[in-house]
Amino acid sequence: MHIRMKIWRQESGQDTGKMLDYELADVNPDMSFLEMLDMLNEQLLEQGQRAIEFDHDCREGICGQCGMMINGRAHGPLKNTTTCQLHMRSFRDGDTIYIEPFRATAFPVKCDLKIDRSAFDRVIQAGGYISVNTGQAPEANSIPIGHPVAEAAFDAAACIGCGACVAVCKNSSAVLFTSAKVTHLVLLPQGEVEAQERVRHMVDQMDAEGFGHCSNTEACEAECPQQISVLHIARMNWEYNKAQLLKK
């Protein structure tokens, strides 16, 4: 395959970037998208040029580090798939591929396609946990949790924190990310204790980071690699409204 690319290049956070043209011949359709970028980087290296910086690590769709806008879509043309799980067979010979970083004010670009997603860490820091210290835990089976509840909690907890939901959202809203953690923990009896404090603090932090409002377009669910349901957003709204009403 012969592939043309327009890729966002930006030296650093202070720099203004631009789209540059690249070309790659002999791309194997079985290559993963990131392997294609590796190949392009090898080519750039041979020419003595700076490699294209992009986030990636596990390359099996679970660490959540990779993520870029490919042809105007978060993680590329496939739904519910991380960038690393995308393969070149999803493109055609001669295609021009546009590659840009995930964009949001809360996710500043650091270099080329690399972005700073520490805002997510701070949202979790604000309350995305159960306050239990090491060594205090009671016997695991002392709290039975119904199979459907455990499964529902898992569905929410499966979030990999890649930020595609923010990238695809027209308002750069982080409610899918935040609500997944709120729902995961509120569903479990051990997490319910702090439910009200948690949701208030996490929403406060989410706003402080500069994410936008949710318009319920549901684009986030369509792109989420873990298919986190938008119903979690409703659940978070419910918990938040409850917490605000019952606040002392």
């Binding site: 327009k6 966002w8 789209m19 806008m69 042809n71 105007g72 879509r73 978060a74 739904k79 546009y98 840009e100 964009r103 949001a104 004010t105 809360a106 670009v109 695809v168 027209k170 308002n171 750069s172 809203s173 500069g210 994410f211 936008g212 409002h213 318009s215 319920n216 377009t217 549901e218 684009a219 369509a222 792109e223």
Partner: peptide, 22 residues
């Protein structure tokens, strides 16, 4: 919402995954 994304995408096909009126 406008402030939450100051730099726009150059090539934007995000519309493919949501309804236009939303």
């Amino acid at each position: 919402n406008k402030r939450s994304r100051e730099v726009k995408y150059h090539y934007d096909k995000r519309g493919e995954v949501s309804k236009w009126y939303t």
